[in-house]
């Protein structure tokens, strides 16, 4: 009888503890914002827009956004601290960048990995030369044509 009672109490205690843990975990998760890049995980032009959302958020919340060059964030630095729910980061060199955000004093979000891979210099120079040629030829036909039109009118 005593054994049964002890067992029943133990089972109830275990169930309550489990429920409590689930509830606490749930409460904790509610304070973790969800972070994502506005476009894909690869940037060809050195900029990225990061967006986060937090279900229990209100206008007074302060968020902290960190950037690092490795997944452990041991070289992390804070790039934004404030109430906004997005941040536009530009001027990045070719490299891999890691981002995370948190509600002030709470746990960090999942890490977002962004790879910045600028276009090749060969392609860039080819397009620049093509652009310069198109522009110069356009200017040339206009200037030449305008001069010729003046001459024709004089004749």
């Amino acid at each position: 009888m005593n054994f049964s009672l002890t067992r029943a109490i133990s089972l109830k205690a275990m169930a309550l503890t489990g429920l409590l843990l689930i509830a606490l975990r749930g409460l904790g998760a509610d304070t973790i914002p969800e972070l994502r890049p506005a476009t894909g995980p690869v940037s060809r032009d050195g900029h990225v827009k990061l967006i986060w959302q937090y279900n229990g958020g209100h206008p007074g919340n302060v968020y902290e956004l960190q950037q690092a060059k490795n997944a452990t964030f041991n070289d992390a630095h804070t790039i934004y601290r404030g109430p906004d729910l997005a941040s536009f980061v530009s001027g990045l060199e070719s490299d891999t960048y890691y981002y995370r955000v948190r509600l002030n004093g709470h746990s960090w979000s999942e890490t977002v990995r962004i790879e910045v891979l600028h276009h090749s210099m060969r392609l860039t120079l080819i397009l620049m030369v093509v652009g310069a040629v198109v522009f110069l030829l356009t200017a040339w036909i206009i200037i030449k044509g305008a001069n010729q039109a003046v001459r024709e009118r004089q004749i």
Partner: peptide
Amino acid sequence: LQPAAMMAVF
């Protein structure tokens, strides 16, 4: 030498 910016000029 910023590739996207250089392309953007022309």
